[in-house]
Design a protein around this nucleic acid. Sequence first.
DNA 1: GTCTATACGAAGATAGAC
DNA 2: GTCTATCTTCGTATAGAC
Lengths: 186, 186
Amino acid sequence: MASDSRERMVRSAAYLLREHGYSGTAFSDVIAHSGAPRGSIYHHFPGGKEQLAEEAVRYAGDFVAAGVRAATRDDDPVAAVRAFSGWWRRVLVDSDFRAGCPIVAVITESRLADAAAAAFRRWQDALAAGLVSAGATPERAARVATLVIASAEGATLLCRARRSLEPFDDVVAELEDLIASACEEG
Amino acid sequence: MASDSRERMVRSAAYLLREHGYSGTAFSDVIAHSGAPRGSIYHHFPGGKEQLAEEAVRYAGDFVAAGVRAATRDDDPVAAVRAFSGWWRRVLVDSDFRAGCPIVAVITESRLADAAAAAFRRWQDALAAGLVSAGATPERAARVATLVIASAEGATLLCRARRSLEPFDDVVAELEDLIASACEEG
DNA sequence: GTCTATACGAAGATAGAC
DNA sequence: GTCTATCTTCGTATAGAC
């Protein structure tokens, strides 16, 4: 299959970006992790490392948004939020607190702000849809979704620094009532 | 003054880390920005770049914590939180949304997690003290302070991606009631 | 599509003079 | 304390064969 290795490279890039950042993830690392052939990098990604990172951000954005949407199908009002925060928990624990969000690496180390904003926007839309279906007004849902994304990203950084899930648990505990009341008011 | 250039280097490193990250901030950049003499880098920082970054994180941590503590002296209950979020707003606007938090760069690109955790801890203590003096219980104040730090860090990343203050404003708007009610319950 | 070899530049670190 | 010169490593990107 021709483009199989290409997709593996994108997935590996997203995986490695979470732990080593943009500068810290070399092509050779992506090759080694994905098992893709070395000689085809610039065939698949003529735009070089930036293009690979851009597609990795898009991949991660779609992956998480799809997970949130899948969780929204149930009737549980805050299932989407739980699916979202659960995703980060797993990244932190599975990596022993060494990995975080690949999009953060791209924001702080490259010029791919637009790709990052697009991914965040898809997360926000997916989360807000879940909140609206649970009773929140569209305006409030959009704001709360932004808060959920921001605090999850920030809490992930705090957890990486402290090598502990405690900051994440504290943040989620504080947000629970806020989310519930946003769904009740609508 | 012997150690004047040393301190300038630390300050410049903190400044440059916010915009270009750890890998993106070279010694030559620090030299150029601080005006410090090139030949004395390893005299002042025998531990190399890691030591410089570690001190930059400590500097930024102290700087922000001191600002929060100064704002706490007034009687305004949420003055500390406002001072804290105001600091980020200024970083974002002054840099045209290119800069963020230097500690984030260090978390995602180096092995200085402990220094980052220590800086965050000082912010948390300063913010929590302000909330306690405004009426919150110590336990709740600690959790809310963590939420404030996490959401400010995350919102800063969202603002950098979108090149807009809107995410930050949305987050602050959502947190206001939560902070007020935390101070009333104590 | 995939390979090897290599050009090219960047940056951290060291040595030794002043 | 500060300087210059250099060593060394690494990583992106390109060229050209298969």
